Simulated assay, not measured.
Amino acid sequence: MYLVLRRFAALCLFAGAMFPAAAQNTVSGAGSTFVEPVLAKWAAQWSQRNSAVIRYEGVGSGAGIDRLKAGRADFAATDAPLKDEELQAGGWRQFPIVAGGIVPVTNLRGVGRKRVRLTGPLLARIFQGKITRWNDPALQAVNGVFTLPDEPITVVRRGDSSGITYNFTAYLSKISAEWAAELGTGKTVKWPVGIAAEGNAGLGQRVIETPFSIGYVEYGYALQHEMQIVNLYATAERAISPTQTTIRNALESADWRSAAEFNLLLVGIQGTDTWPIAASTWIVMPRDAQKAQNVREALAFFDWALQRGGETADALGYTPLPPGLIGLIRDSWKR
């Protein structure tokens, strides 16, 4: 019996040497933590059906671009679009892949399902450290009969280079001249207050763990973790909630045809039914797809994601791109 098993094992080794399993090519990407959940899901679906394996690591938008520059990634994902001159210098193309919302979130004890309501300027003053208690008269005035707690506000903000921070601070710069003058827009800013957290999930978890805190995260993450989402006033009378509809309204209001490299921000778009901190994630990759197999594989993956991945994105709280924009993106690949 032992001799039979040995001969069988040898035969298997011989067969394996003669007919090796087809190797799967690995395409690597890095960047935005905002888009990491949906990219990971798409990558798993794609890799089951195709010869290439897509591996993506959410390290932050800035770090993703650094990896692409260093040749350590085949593509990068960023929530802060690159300028035309940056793309030209790198020999890269850029296009949006999905949209979503950035939402302020709180951790207030004993309020049940009630949501804090804020104006944009009040939100800016909290993150500037100029409003420091939840029951500040200015906050209480916009929250009506909802009595806010007499507790200090703990600000939680990103400590890494973040596209989510870029969009969040771009919104605050648009809505508050004081913020624009003192802090401005950036993947990192000189925060005057707050606890630093790494990544979208890291910031969200820190808010969950910290009583009477406020932070900002991706909308889908807030939904999945049942976080307290802040409503923002669009007019003096009406506060807007982030939903797929209000985020989609911002996405569809943008004039995408006006930007050949799709570098448009969605923050601060005015409308009675439009979420004011909508954002898209851009893919940045080498422009010439004919020079490298991995680049061709990545482009095929994103083509599939744009045309077939909408249902998955929607289920995770993201907003799929509209057909007209997908058409513009696919046309841009021919240039």
Score class of each variant (00 low, 15 high):
333 W>S: 11
126 I>Q: 05
125 R>V: 05
288 D>N: 15
145 V>M: 07
23 A>K: 14
252 E>Q: 13
45 Q>F: 10
85 E>A: 11
131 I>C: 07
157 R>M: 08
157 R>D: 03
135 N>C: 08
294 N>D: 14
82 L>H: 03
137 P>V: 05
186 G>D: 13
14 F>S: 15
178 E>F: 08
229 I>W: 04
335 R>T: 11
282 W>V: 02
31 G>C: 08
72 R>S: 09
18 M>T: 10
49 R>A: 15
232 L>E: 00
54 I>T: 00
162 S>D: 10
47 S>N: 07
84 D>H: 12
4 V>L: 15
118 L>S: 02
44 A>L: 14
147 T>G: 11
153 I>Q: 03
330 R>T: 06
40 A>S: 11
28 S>C: 08
149 P>W: 06
270 Q>N: 12
99 A>W: 01
89 A>S: 10
175 I>N: 01
217 V>S: 02
101 G>D: 00
21 A>H: 14
296 R>S: 13
220 G>H: 05
140 Q>N: 07
133 R>N: 10
294 N>T: 06
321 L>P: 00
52 A>D: 08
252 E>F: 06
9 A>L: 15
332 S>I: 03
303 D>P: 04
152 P>K: 11
230 V>Q: 01
59 V>D: 04
15 A>T: 10
320 P>G: 02
33 T>Y: 04
202 G>F: 09
199 G>Q: 06
